[in-house]
Amino acid sequence: MSDETKTMPLSTLEGALSLDPLVVAVITAMAIVTYATKVGGLWLLSRIEVSDRLEAGLAVLPGAIVVAILGPELAAAGPAEWGAAVVVAVIAWRSNNILLALVGGVLAVVLFRGLF
């Protein structure tokens, strides 16, 4: 690892600047889809009536999706990660400071992995 970093600064720079055509295509698709969602509502509003019911359903999507990501991820992890997740949640909730929460979480997971 230390050898690699010493001997390949040039190829590392090349790697940092590389743009894989397929990756660029996926990013472009994501950008188009996202822009469509950003302008779609305004565009659609002039055509159809969005019910409050539908709006309530869409409003829970972001939180629900993040929960759906975390559930299986944490279920597959161990006590060290569970403990660190609690640390992150408490710091994020109390301080509203994302960087502080992340640093706390990473320190906690290293500490707990040493303990358990």
Partner: peptide, 26 residues
């Protein structure tokens, strides 16, 4: 950083989502 598990950096993603959850809680 290199190997992410060494300094607990593999946990950053989970941590980001936990923080997002704390923020999205309504």
């Amino acid at each position: 950083i290199g190997d992410p598990t060494r300094y607990g950096f593999d946990f950053i993603l989970v941590a980001v989502f936990v923080a997002l959850v704390a923020e999205l809680w309504d």
